[in-house]
Design a binder for these strands. Structure first.
Lengths: 228, 228
DNA sequence: CGGGACGTTGACGGTCCCTTGACGCCGTCG
DNA sequence: CGACGGCGTCAAGGGACCGTCAACGTCCCG
């Protein structure tokens, strides 16, 4: 029901390990990054439900990491910092962070803030039904399963990511840029070839007549749209 | 652009006054309540963009206030509390609060957290469709779709960009220069021929009688106007 | 070690769209 | 009355985009 993937970003391996153990005990799936570049890469590829970010990173400013993620994603970001005072808080929140926790912190407060951050973000995504029907297609967004005329259709992770993005925005056009960024990450904004390949594969698996699709519709020059 | 109504709930009149002055200086419209019942009443009647809530109220628990608001509204709630430690934070966040600030607090941090809370909430509300009706035309600005007498009309990217600019300024004249710059960019300020071509195409697709348009009206020598 | 699934590229043909120019209409002004 | 400018219309060419196919490398699992 609740999202459970947290990306921990901290340059101190000991703290990352300690946090990971604690978070896993409380049911989180944990991913880790020790510098800003890794963090951006993980955020793009792994799609965490919340990012726990230490501002003191070796390779780039924490604010740049926030900006780098906010450029294409609305995933909640909880900032973790040793500095008790100063304008860090203000800057981080204004840069797009969702919450701020100062070291030292109580574990249960951190957990509560993570839960709150995920819960706040939830309504945006979870507003739609878990199961979407479209003609002879049945798409279960929660279970990540697709059935066509009752038979299960096997989708690769990328195929599913493309379909999920389209289905969550069903009835409305999804711009190419948004699709690329949500599935492949912000560095792939120009790889329109990917979209051609994967829409074709999805049509082959899901459409009765791939040459005349009824669900995955191209809006030339703009993007794609999923029709129920 | 940003929401600007904040409801301040605190039983201490002096603090309410001080906060109100500070918030007003920074552009907020401020409403005040000094107990839980007032707070719930104000929240329901006044529809603030964010609630700043002190947990220590005379008549009811702060958690009940949170629950009372959460029962019907997703307005962001920032909790304000004197207690530095304890489980207050955890309880408040789990009850549905969005953020937590402890006294004493820095004014600029509070302002940043309020801004962050409002910004987070914005997408949920802004997701409502801007659908414009004009005669037999239905233009869905969010979904990027146009229907005429119920049938979908296919528009090219440039056609859509022109129409969108006109519709977003419906009822107002859009100068040629603005139209050219918003659709083609600032380097195309003299390409008035483009406008002639695309207004003609749009009329052919959208108007019942392209020779006597009822929606896309020319203002000779100046620009175009979209009439509903 | 072998095989399959998957992601990534590149090539190619077909289609659609943007751009451009020419032309006619109409109102205005000299 | 004729010239002129603004506007609408049309058509054509060239380029961008899209769908399709195939090949390659990688990773994982048997």
């Amino acid at each position: 029901m609740t999202g459970n993937r947290v990306l921990v970003v901290d340059d101190e391996p000991g703290l990352v390990t300690a946090l990971s153990i604690n978070l896993r005990v409380h049911g989180w799936e944990v991913g880790a990054a020790t510098d800003g570049a890794q963090a951006l890469d993980m955020a793009a590829r792994w799609h965490p439900d919340v990012v726990l970010l230490d501002l003191g990173l070796p390779d780039m400013s924490g604010l740049d990491v926030i900006a780098g993620i906010r450029g294409w994603s609305h995933v909640p970001i909880v900032v973790l910092s040793a500095r008790q005072h100063g304008e860090d808080k203000v800057d981080a929140l204004d840069a797009g962070a969702d919450d701020y926790v100062t070291k030292p912190f109580a574990m249960d407060e951190l957990l509560a803030r993570l839960r709150a951050a995920v819960r706040r973000a939830a309504p945006v995504d979870a507003a739609d039904d878990a199961v979407v029907e479209a003609g002879d297609l049945t798409i279960d967004l929660a279970r990540r399963r697709v059935h066509r005329s009752g038979a299960e259709v096997r989708l690769s992770p990328t195929e599913w990511a493309v379909l999920e993005t389209l289905v969550r925005n069903r009835g409305r056009m999804v711009p190419r840029l948004q699709l690329l960024q949500e599935v492949w990450g912000p560095a792939y904004s120009n790889e329109t070839g990917y979209l051609r390949v994967y829409t074709a594969q999805l049509r082959r698996k899901l459409e009765a007549d791939a040459a005349h699709p009824r669900h995955i519709i191209t809006q030339p020059g703009m993007g794609y749209i999923f029709e129920t």
